[in-house]
Simulated scan of single mutants.
Amino acid sequence: MWNCLYLPVCRIHTTGQLLKKAPVRFKGKSGAEQRWLERQVNDPFVKAAHLQHFRCRSAFKLLEIDEKHRLLKPGLSVIDCGAAPGAWSQVAVQRVNSAGERPDLARGYVFGVDLLHIAPLQGAHFLSNCDITSPATHAELQKLLPEAYADIILSDMAPNATGVRELDHERLVSMCLSLLDLAERLLRPGGSLLCKYWDGALTHKLRDGLNRAFQDVKTVKPKASRKESAELYFLARTFRKT
């Protein structure tokens, strides 16, 4: 695995050279299933994730964002919301040095939370089968965090899709708004929050909430996000704790 602390993330864009796009057919699969599987096979980020031992392609979204905005630094404490299967936590572990692989750098902390089970990862402490919106989960995190505060909250979580775009958008905005309660309890003043959302009619509500809580809020869309996807990310920095 390459060292994500020091290798420029722009190099991942050359991974398209590793794949040759060609028609793929899968016996017994519907047309929609075949299209999805063919997209996976022809996706350079899927292949790169396998080669670099990331748990899924979403790692490259966080790598791109961090390379540009310098969010994760050695010694920081991170909460990864909706962490399963753990790809964002892998990136965070490397960037904040929570596994202590660089003894010359400050050692950070990574805590991942998900309703699903998350396989163990050196340098990360996972709370599997836990609800990030639950006060009990907040209390557990507060006990685990050094000085009871995190420097960064990450969220790539999303609800199970219903296929109704407006409903899915509304549910994800609601999940993102719940992160403001988490921030109020556990985010250090001056801290940052990165959360995924699907664009839609309630985007302004989420942006307004973030603007009230953070000094700087911007929208980012990494190249690793598929062009046809409605997903975007809000990067909110300099938390103003009330």
Score class of each variant (00 low, 15 high):
residue 1 M to G: 15
residue 2 W to A: 12
residue 5 L to T: 06
residue 5 L to S: 11
residue 6 Y to G: 05
residue 15 T to L: 13
residue 20 K to P: 09
residue 21 K to R: 15
residue 22 A to C: 12
residue 22 A to Y: 13
residue 24 V to G: 04
residue 25 R to V: 11
residue 25 R to F: 13
residue 30 S to M: 08
residue 31 G to M: 12
residue 32 A to P: 02
residue 34 Q to E: 15
residue 37 L to D: 07
residue 38 E to F: 03
residue 39 R to K: 10
residue 39 R to E: 06
residue 44 P to R: 03
residue 45 F to K: 02
residue 47 K to G: 11
residue 49 A to W: 01
residue 49 A to I: 07
residue 50 H to K: 14
residue 52 Q to Y: 10
residue 54 F to K: 03
residue 58 S to P: 10
residue 61 K to G: 07
residue 61 K to N: 03
residue 64 E to A: 06
residue 64 E to S: 05
residue 65 I to Y: 03
residue 71 L to Y: 07
residue 71 L to A: 09
residue 72 L to N: 02
residue 75 G to L: 06
residue 76 L to D: 00
residue 77 S to D: 06
residue 79 I to P: 13
residue 82 G to R: 02
residue 82 G to P: 00
residue 84 A to H: 04
residue 84 A to R: 01
residue 87 A to K: 07
residue 90 Q to D: 07
residue 92 A to R: 09
residue 97 N to E: 01
residue 98 S to P: 14
residue 99 A to F: 00
residue 99 A to L: 06
residue 102 R to N: 15
residue 107 R to I: 12
residue 108 G to A: 03
residue 109 Y to Q: 13
residue 113 V to K: 06
residue 117 H to Y: 09
residue 118 I to M: 13
residue 119 A to P: 07
residue 120 P to N: 05
residue 122 Q to M: 11
residue 123 G to A: 00
residue 127 L to S: 05
residue 132 I to T: 09
residue 135 P to F: 00
residue 136 A to S: 14
residue 138 H to D: 10
residue 139 A to K: 13
residue 139 A to S: 15
residue 145 L to V: 10
residue 145 L to C: 13
residue 148 A to T: 14
residue 150 A to P: 15
residue 152 I to M: 04
residue 152 I to W: 01
residue 156 D to C: 15
residue 162 T to F: 00
residue 162 T to C: 08
residue 162 T to L: 08
residue 164 V to N: 14
residue 168 D to A: 09
residue 168 D to W: 04
residue 168 D to S: 10
residue 171 R to V: 06
residue 172 L to C: 13
residue 174 S to H: 07
residue 178 S to C: 08
residue 180 L to A: 02
residue 186 L to M: 11
residue 189 P to Q: 00
residue 191 G to Q: 05
residue 191 G to H: 06
residue 194 L to C: 05
residue 195 C to E: 07
residue 195 C to V: 14
residue 195 C to A: 15
residue 200 G to I: 02
residue 200 G to S: 07
residue 201 A to R: 11
residue 204 H to G: 13
residue 208 D to G: 06
residue 211 N to W: 01
residue 211 N to I: 03
residue 212 R to C: 08
residue 213 A to H: 13
residue 216 D to W: 14
residue 217 V to F: 01
residue 220 V to F: 05
residue 222 P to S: 01
residue 223 K to V: 12
residue 223 K to T: 10
residue 224 A to L: 09
residue 226 R to M: 06
residue 229 S to I: 03
residue 230 A to H: 10
residue 231 E to V: 06
residue 232 L to F: 09
residue 232 L to S: 11
residue 233 Y to P: 07
residue 235 L to A: 04
residue 236 A to E: 09
residue 238 T to N: 12
residue 239 F to K: 10
residue 240 R to T: 10
